[in-house]
Amino acid sequence: MTSLTSTRARIDWSGIAFAVLLTLVIIGPLVVVATWAFTEVWRYPNIIPQKFGFRFWGQTLGRPDVWNALMLSLKLSTVVTLLSALICLPAAYAFARMKFPGRDILFFSFLAGHAFPKFGLLVAIAAIFLQLNLIGTFWGVVLIQLVGTLMFMIWIPVAAFQAVDRRMEEAARDVGASPLRVFWSITLPQAGPTIFAAVLLSFVGTFYETEGAWLIGAPGIRTMPVLMISYINNQMVIQYGAVLSVLLWVPSFIALMFARRVIGGGAFARGFGG
């Protein structure tokens, strides 16, 4: 009895402190930005805006460059993710399941792009792309963003394929399934949720990728984040940037909600070898 009441009465103060701190740090800026997006007049020293409204939404969404950038970003993310899946998933399966000469070096080379300071690497690549006439082109940006997805799309699926119990695959062979059928009916569904997480991460990551898109894509290719940066840098009106940033929450929010439903918490952790 006493132990029951004592556990009920004990409050986890350090846990609450962490939760409050995290809330302040994460939610705080989001609230400020969201507030700005719906503000028409907000002058110092008022704590809340004098006038709320949708005027700047209308203005921002009325601009053709915003719509072009949004469509471009969606197209870019889709193409990059599909290409990445096409290249990386078979490679990940090979890394996870097959033995071949140079396997470890190849595996490492896939990740080497992340071992250097990214901007230096981008500038070097930009120099090469300049000679290949890829600067300012759609496919130039696709290529540079592909590099960025390699880590997610190799590492996580490799871990996912390795985590599939070999006995499960053998049991499927035993009941009469061909190797291809085993892959389709057993290996892929077992690794599926984790691989889906990787695809989602790479889509969202590509959507928000800025440095590569800016360095390689400018001036012809302007993705949503690049457009947002130019708004923040060049416009005196804060609201344009705020409205765009609220808009940019939408894909990641949808992705996260979707991910939670489809995957459940364990798959991400498993993908990272947890």
Binding site: D165, R167, A171, A172
Partner: peptide, 11 residues
């Protein structure tokens, strides 16, 4: 074959 780890398909 019946495996030691039973190897049922969990999905």
């Amino acid at each position: 074959m019946v495996f030691q780890s039973h190897a049922l398909w969990t999905h």
